[in-house]
């Protein structure tokens, strides 16, 4: 009976997740173009082309900057906010509910909202900066290659931090208060208690959180696609947006699939590196 219960889920996950992952690699060995929709086998040629293509390396670099930026802000910011929400203060109950709003908001809507916030003429951000006299004319945050990446990272942080905060908050509430009190009696200041007792206690949760947000951010499509379509000049193009553009914009399924396979490779290397660094740190401590 156990197998019977499991079967439908197993078939779907195997057929629609594991098989496509393998099939992506097979697909990447074939060339399909808009003019020639019949796939022709070309082996690893697409990969060779990609490795020699500066756009590909730009995508790799962007993906890493984007992921590190969002994950850093989401986790460090999310943790600091969780610390604040864990204090005994008036209005905490309401604030704890309110901060979840961005996370519940559909990604496309969040992106539309931020497109509008960043708008050179009508955006709230420019309006705010102009009132303060920091800028004279509206800045096209999303239109400038130099600011576009920072702008999409911030929007993604805004959308995603509640998740980290909620998880950190739950972890903070599970911290053994006796240990905190003991440290207090030993004369440890609040910063000392934070680093010696609280952070070690929640470290395992932090590791899971960082891994989770890394993977989700690396694969996140909605915000960048709606905010910039990966532009200007590929300044914010990451793997998922590039795959969509190459596959469904240019109908080069083979190349899109190669990007797909490589995105898995980059993600695995990236997560592996993260785990390695984490293990080193635990040993060093």
């Amino acid at each position: 009976m156990a197998y019977g219960f499991m079967l439908p889920a197993a078939i779907l996950v195997a057929g629609l997740m594991y098989w496509p992952m393998i099939d992506t690699f097979r697909e990447s060995l074939y060339a399909t173009t808009f003019l020639n929709p019949n796939p022709t086998f070309i082996g690893l040629k697409t990969y060779e082309q990609l490795f020699g293509d500066s756009t590909f390396w730009q995508i790799v670099r962007n993906s890493i900057i984007w992921t590190i930026g969002v994950v850093f802000l989401q986790n460090v910011g999310g943790f600091l906010i969780a610390l604040l929400l864990n204090q005994k203060l008036p209005g905490q109950g309401i604030l704890r509910s309110l901060i979840l709003l961005p996370w519940v908001l559909p990604g496309v809507v969040a992106a539309i909202l931020w497109r509008f916030m960043y708008d050179p003429q009508l955006g709230l951000i420019n309006s705010f900066f102009m009132r303060l006299g920091i800028v004279e004319h509206g800045v096209g945050w999303l239109a400038e290659p130099s600011t576009a990446m920072a702008a999409v990272i911030f929007a993604a942080f805004w959308k995603g931090f509640p998740f980290s905060t909620v998880v950190f908050l739950a972890a903070l509430q599970n911290v053994d208060q006796e240990q905190v009190e003991a440290a207090k009696i030993d004369g440890a200041g609040s910063l000392r208690r934070l680093f010696d007792v609280v952070i070690p206690a929640i470290w395992p949760v932090a590791v899971v959180n960082v891994l989770l947000t890394t993977i989700l951010t690396f694969n996140y499509f909605d915000i960048i696609y709606v905010l910039t379509r990966g532009g200007p000049l590929n300044a914010t193009a990451i793997f998922p947006t590039r795959i969509y553009e190459v596959g469904f914009g240019q109908f080069k399924f083979g190349e899109a699939a190669a990007y797909g396979s490589l995105s898995v490779l980059v993600l695995v290397l990236f997560v592996g590196l993260l785990l390695l660094v984490q293990r080193r740190q635990v040993k060093a401590a």
């Binding site: 992952m21 992506t24 697909e27 499509f221 795959i243 969509y244 899109a256 990007y259 797909g260 898995v264």
Partner: peptide, 14 residues
């Protein structure tokens, strides 16, 4: 954790 982007082409074809 599989990237939807990596699976989208085969799934689309299916």
């Amino acid at each position: 954790f599989f990237p939807a982007g990596a699976m989208i082409i085969p799934i689309y074809k299916m």
